[in-house]
Amino acid sequence: MTLLAPPAATTHAAQWTPVCAIDDLESERGRAALVGDTQIALFLLYSGRIHAVSNRDPYSGAHVIARGIVGSRDGAPTVASPMYKQVFDLRTGRCLDALGKEEKSLTTWPVAVRGGEVLVRWGSTL
């Protein structure tokens, strides 16, 4: 994904950046967050795992991924874009159902939780 090249932080070593409290997240519903100039989407799964992917829907160009429905497909945790319903694997960002369109994926970032705080490893992508 070229459009979402991480901002200034790339010049530094990758670092864990605090984004929000884990209590700000809602199970199986995304929340958008801003890291530098980049819009990301955070998802807290039913299993308790948290994933961070780019909030920009590559098919519409709108920043709406956080507002998609969370679910599963063949065991993979997924989000369906609310715009045209393409389905993405939250772990890898890969598009699992491009609905006949060219396959485009989401950028993903590693996530950690420390002391009730959600951290995203910035300056590096998975």
């Binding site: 199986e28 799964l45 039913y46 998609g68 429905i69 969370v70 679910g71 599963s72 497909r73 065991g75 945790p77 997924t78 369906a80 319903k85 389905v87």
Partner: peptide, 10 residues
């Protein structure tokens, strides 16, 4: 089975 999707959840 699973955790649903944009078809069954709505």
């Amino acid at each position: 089975t699973g955790r649903g999707c944009d078809i069954c959840k709505p």
